[in-house]
């Protein structure tokens, strides 16, 4: 199963840091997200971008996880030469993760 089937996501940025939320449609799926989508798995998933550190924050009452990815944006929105300088598309890639 892909995350896309049970969760949605939005991505924002600050400097060279990407902030990706992962939100269960059905609150009862939150435990599954918490168990399977660990910080280290997310770091591995985005490792080709150069991500060095991922911190995960849990908001069980909202059925949501919040991931903070350091060095994810090739220098950040104001200096990167990438097409998507903000990394706005990253959350939709995360939803393709198999769990």
């Amino acid at each position: 199963m892909k995350l896309y089937e049970i969760a949605h996501s939005r991505t924002g940025d600050k400097g060279n840091i990407s902030n990706i939320s992962l939100i269960a449609y059905d609150p009862t799926d939150f435990e599954l997200l918490r168990e399977r989508v660990t910080a280290s798995r997310v770091r591995e998933f985005f490792s080709s971008l150069g991500v060095t550190e991922v911190r995960r924050y849990e908001l069980p009452q909202l059925g949501a996880l919040n991931f903070v990815l350091h060095n994810a944006l090739a220098g950040g929105v104001t200096s990167a030469t990438t097409l998507d300088k903000h990394g706005k598309t990253l959350g939709s890639f995360l939803l393709e993760m198999e769990i």
Partner: peptide, 17 residues
């Protein structure tokens, strides 16, 4: 909806606490 508000609540905030 709670879904739209949750997405915006977590938007670019890093540590929610």
């Amino acid at each position: 909806s709670t879904a739209t508000v949750t997405e915006q609540l977590l938007y670019e905030i890093h540590d929610p606490a």
